[in-house]
Design a protein around this nucleic acid. Sequence first.
DNA 1: TATAATT
Length: 263
Amino acid sequence: MPHEAVSFLSLEMYKVSYARPSSASIRDANLYVSGLPKTMTQKELEQLFSQYGRIITSRILVDQVTGVSRGVGFIRFDKRIEAEEAIKGLNGQKPSGATEPITVKFANNPSQKSSQALLSQLYQSPNRRYPGPLHHQAQRFRLDNLLNMAYGVKRFSPITIDGMTSLVGMNIPGHTGTGWCIFVYNLSPDSDESVLWQLFGPFGAVNNVKVIRDFNTNKCKGFGFVTMTNYDEAAMAIASLNGYRLGDRVLQVSFKTNKAHKS
DNA sequence: TATAATT
């Protein structure tokens, strides 16, 4: 082999493998898994599912800022039948050591993502911060005490929260890896992300908003989530927007909890 | 449709 060819090959690294044969037996063998413990690693996820067949790929979705697991992942099996067996065996089951059951279902095809969903992501880029009505110290103090009583939450400084990864998995209502998660109930079926940005933006730094939709109809299920960076601003938004009348609906706004239809 | 999440 000429020297030039050897040099060329040594500079490039390729992964070469045979394409998997396309057939019905491996079609739709991809699973979506939610409710995973935040501490579960990709390796542990594979160990859990490997008893049902040969895993082709796996993934755990993580928060882009903190790297903390979002409790959601994917498992692609070699064969459709393996995926079916994994659903039978693991859906609704608690992995050893877990406190909550996991959900295992066939994954949606990414290509069928709606144009509406794609458009809504355009709203997620600005991290605009409006000067909220949070400058009066006495007002802040009273509000914090009110919320401490209501939710049993001590007021943590953002520095403490962000600096302690050991807090991952602790049950602080509304607190997530990147901020304070707020549950918004009674949105109309045609709500989209922009309404949440408009409602919460004036109270401070909004990291993220999400309207939860039915996959088939693409209509809002009546609720959504807003993540805000700062506790004070989240608390003020909740105090102001809970009971707020939006059109002919009265919103219910609170820190996100784990339990279903509490309050 | 009362606490998600779709690489």
